[in-house]
């Protein structure tokens, strides 16, 4: 497996008047070519900021800290000049967002907005770009695209708008598609349709996907690999089967058991993670999960654990320093 995207020690901080928000504070993750990595974590754990950092869309007061690396296709994006970055952004790496209702410009037709993505990276005239836009709309399952290219966003439903977003994102055959909670804002039935569409397109086009979600059901549905984020860091990574069957980090374990559908059985009743996510203004010292962890001991509260390799997984828990930890996973994965 070749790494398409390799993020190493990514730290993105926001310098505000109320202090420094260390929203992303040492994230390591890898997306392999043609595979889907799901990033899961509670809200506020830094998932969106990680994605925007990869896209190079972090604005002041946010700043990617020196020492971070975002290696895409062998090149460190953080060392590229803006011009070259822009030619990668929207062509090789594209992104779709959580809110299809507000993510499209209300004063332009959807056809124009798809064609705009085509024209940003291809030397085509307006007519050629429009034809490509129709083709893309057909690809993402929008009925009668010749007519609907003239629609404005407000004339479409949330699901249709998200299809438009996907169409624009696929316009230049990207190597990597980043999807930041693309179904969270949609109705359940529409969610399923969009996930189905994304799976179908991935299989047909071979695009690698970095999918952000806080929904473990979506992970079960989509992921090849998983990265679990907590408090600005990745605490566990591995293949979806490994992570679901043998979670190595107590946070992952707790997360799996807090979802009714996935973790419930007589031996493992539904569990709630006690306490609250800490603030990025003031992360706890030591392991950031320690204050909420039922297995924490003295060292956890003093020293930040690195990612230990456990078989094919990696886990940032002191209990994994000397190998696999006995843990309760989820036997049945709903796929």
């Amino acid at each position: 497996m070749t790494a398409l995207l390799d993020v190493k020690n990514l730290r993105t901080h926001f310098h505000t008047t109320s202090g420094v928000y260390r929203a992303v504070d040492g994230v390591d993750l890898t997306v392999h070519a043609g595979r889907t990595l799901c990033v899961v974590g509670e809200s506020g754990s830094g998932k969106s900021v990680t994605a925007l950092s990869v896209m190079g869309l972090i604005d002041a007061p946010g700043q990617v800290q020196p020492g971070s690396e975002i290696v895409f296709d062998g090149r460190d994006l953080l060392r590229l000049p803006e011009r070259q970055l822009r030619s990668i952004r929207g062509r090789d790496i594209t992104m779709i967002f959580q809110e299809p209702m507000t993510s499209l410009d209300p004063v332009y037709t959807v056809g124009y907005q798809i064609a705009e993505a085509v024209r940003a990276h291809n030397d085509v005239d307006r007519k050629g770009a429009t034809e490509r836009a129709i083709e893309l709309m057909r690809l993402v399952g929008i009925p009668s695209p010749e007519r609907r290219i003239h629609d404005y966003p407000h004339q479409m439903s949330g699901g249709m708008r998200q299809r438009v977003m996907i169409a624009a994102a696929l316009s230049c055959d990207p190597k990597l598609l980043i999807a930041d909670e693309p179904t969270t804002a949609l109705d359940v039935t529409i969610q399923a349709q969009i996930l189905e569409l994304m799976k179908d397109l991935r299989d047909r086009l071979g695009t690698a996907i970095l999918m952000i979600t806080h929904d473990l059901g979506v992970v079960a549905e989509m992921a090849d690999d998983v990265a679990v984020m907590y408090a600005g860091k990745v605490v566990e990574t591995g293949s979806v089967t490994d992570v679901f069957n043998r979670p190595q980090h107590p946070y992952t374990e707790a997360l799996l058991q807090s979802v009714p559908v996935l973790g419930m059985s007589k031996e493992h009743p539904l569990r709630v993670i006690q306490g609250m996510v800490p603030s990025p203004l003031n992360w706890p010292t030591g392991c950031r999960f320690a204050p909420r962890c039922t297995e924490a001991f003295d060292r956890c509260r003093e020293e930040l654990p690195p990612l230990f390799t456990v078989d094919d997984q990696r886990s940032a828990c002191w209990l994994c320093e000397t190998g696999a930890r006995g843990s309760a996973g989820v036997e049945e994965i709903y796929r």
Partner: peptide, 14 residues
């Protein structure tokens, strides 16, 4: 500051 501006930037538009 609006979401759609971020979308346009994500497309690689100048």
């Amino acid at each position: 500051e609006m979401d759609f501006i971020r979308t346009v930037r994500a497309k690689g538009v100048a």
